[in-house]
Amino acid sequence: MKLFVGILLIGTTALFAASSKLDDKTGLVWQDNKDVATLEKSHAEAQVYCQNLILDGFEDWRLPTLKEAYTIVDLSRDRPALKKGFKMRLSDRFWTDTAVAKNPDKEAWRLSMSYGETEPYKKARAYRVRCVRGTFAK
């Protein structure tokens, strides 16, 4: 029964998954609904938001690390420097989970999707959020 429900869930997700996108190259699944374009959160809020997110039947969402976030960046594109296949195409700045080693309590790495550059910024500032799920293989 459990297996049946599981298969049903995966099947339903595959059919109706309009809110997330699987990246075949990394195996990571990315949030891709309108919240990506509308919400802005502080670093701490962004972490909690992803932890509490339930999307396409999954609950294991989290804020991506900087290196994970870079896997959907395409530097041959700009405004946004985002790979093909995403519906939410924003040139905004996004939070990553990665803290700045020198000042981990106060700063984290934000990634600008205009061109794909990253820089440390104050965790208190609000930026866009695109949660991820799955294991980063590379």
């Binding site: 530097l75 700045v100 790495w109 061109y115 550059e117 990253t118 820089e119």
Partner: peptide, 12 residues
């Protein structure tokens, strides 16, 4: 593109 190895900042 360049990468700054003091902290890891990336820049064009």
């Amino acid at each position: 593109w360049t990468i700054d190895f003091r902290a890891g900042k990336t820049y064009y």
